[in-house]
Design a protein around this nucleic acid. Sequence first.
DNA 1: ATAACTGCAAAACATTTGCATACAG
DNA 2: CTGTATGCAAATGTTTTGCAGTTAT
Lengths: 160, 160
Amino acid sequence: MTLIPKRQLEEVRRIFSDFLRDRGQRQTPERFAILDEVYATSGHFDADELYVGLKEKEVGVSRATVYNTLDLLIECDLVVKHQFGNKQAKYERAYSYWQHDHLICMDCNELFEFCDPRIQGIQEMVADIYQFEVKHHSLHIYGHCRRENCPNRPGSEAHS
Amino acid sequence: MTLIPKRQLEEVRRIFSDFLRDRGQRQTPERFAILDEVYATSGHFDADELYVGLKEKEVGVSRATVYNTLDLLIECDLVVKHQFGNKQAKYERAYSYWQHDHLICMDCNELFEFCDPRIQGIQEMVADIYQFEVKHHSLHIYGHCRRENCPNRPGSEAHS
DNA sequence: ATAACTGCAAAACATTTGCATACAG
DNA sequence: CTGTATGCAAATGTTTTGCAGTTAT
């Protein structure tokens, strides 16, 4: 849906490159291959999907490198990490994408994105009252969607 | 801090008992021992802390039973489960305790609780716009606290 | 040159599962 | 009695780690 234009991909590569240089870390082909794969993906993905996606292309990167690089990308705000109910972490590219929160269907696990300005006010209130330096937040709303193909639809077959 | 009075513990036991009866499930001593331990704990705990806490008392319950019973307690709304950044789930008793969200210090991992009525409005908005039947939410705000013993305090020693 | 990075496979970790035994109803 | 729950230990699945070999700088 939200494929990133070439210009932005270059911008993102430059951000990562600068970040690595500033920290005295190496610019390896693996790291940029992972960055490219992340930004070629729209939506949420997990570490293994990224690993498999890369393996299917010419690039061979190990899982360890995928995890390592994801951590770097999170540190420079090019990727965000989410822990939805399950134990497997999900990731998402973060550059030039609207700040949003998530709606999770407990039946089909589908994710929907939404945004509400009130959350900003809540963050400010909390920062003020608790003398907290707020960095980021995660708001997950869980419930049941009403889509045709959702296993919970009224009228779908019985369940144990 | 919020130790539960005897009356409420009885109430909670009754809720669990009714829940089990209604579902045709057994009222085992292990299940009630776990319930008691949960309600003897104030604040957040993980499955293993519960397991160890029980082992230190007379009761011997296996980890499998701890996990099983926690799921039952979640189903009858006596316990809530949280996934903070780490892969280990945290639990918290839910009966007769205010609905709240969490503030997490990224330095010391301390948890603070807060509540803001605006979150209610956000849930309603989302339910309406997305035709979603909202069940619950989790709002986590991450940042840096300003407590004396927090490793991030300005003036604390350098770190690698 | 040399310190950082990679890949691999093993380790760690929380949680789940299978099965023989125990016990609540 | 009978089927459900338990305990144990083994299995699972994700993420981390140790180390020998590789490579960016």
